[in-house]
Simulated assay, not measured.
Amino acid sequence: MQGLLGVSRVIDRVLATLAGIGGWMGFALVVVVCYDVITRYFGVPKPAGLNSTMIQEFEYWLHSGLIVFAIGYAYTRNAHVRIELLRDSFSNRTKHLIEVIGLLAALIPYAAIGLYLSWPFVKQSFISGEISKSQTGLSNLWIVKAGLLVLFGMLLLAGISQLIKSLAGLSGALGADEEEELLGGGH
């Protein structure tokens, strides 16, 4: 079980690193929005052939990236909805069991199906050279659509990591601090 917990820790570190990238995308989003507002409302010219449509579409790309790169980490940090009113009265063993059932019945299959169904969508976008519907918009839309693959992949990794920890909790292999982090609710 300790080897699997090591795998879980590696997954958690990867998700935390990617969430950091998402955080920088959030910072870039703020900068780009400010730039967009200043150039649009104060008449500042846009350099290098940029236009308002391109900037606004890039804002959408950054916002998508922020969500995509943060979602797996957020799940491992218990930043998702739970029914705390009922759950708080359960024993830790019951909480672990509910987590295992939820991961195996919902999150992991959902992420796997999402990956499976997203791949043709992204592939077709890449092959066709899909561009913005706006004549002055961005090209290479497959990049933002590939975010679906990253999102579902990160959710799948987060689900696997949480499954390992929950199984370790069921077997009594988690330390008290790890168990509190896993079951604490994060709120």
Rank of each mutant, 00 (worst) to 15 (best):
D36F: 14
A105F: 07
T76S: 08
H63E: 10
E180T: 14
S171T: 15
P109I: 06
L151F: 06
R77D: 01
S139G: 15
F27H: 07
D12Q: 11
F58M: 08
T53Y: 04
G72Y: 02
M25R: 01
P47S: 12
I131F: 11
F42G: 02
I38N: 07
Y75M: 13
Y73C: 14
N92Y: 09
H187E: 14
H96R: 03
A112K: 07
K123S: 12
I131V: 12
K145W: 09
A105L: 11
I55H: 03
R87M: 10
F27E: 10
G22I: 00
W61I: 00
V37W: 10
D88M: 11
L18D: 00
Y73R: 11
L85H: 15
K145L: 07
G23W: 00
A79G: 14
L66V: 09
L117E: 15
L5H: 08
S52M: 07
W142I: 03
E57R: 04
R13H: 14
Q124M: 13
G23Y: 03
E99V: 04
P120Y: 02
E181P: 04
S8I: 00
E99N: 14
P47I: 15
G22N: 02
W61N: 05
L156E: 03
L117F: 13
W142S: 06
L50D: 12
L29S: 09
A16C: 14
D88I: 13
L29K: 04
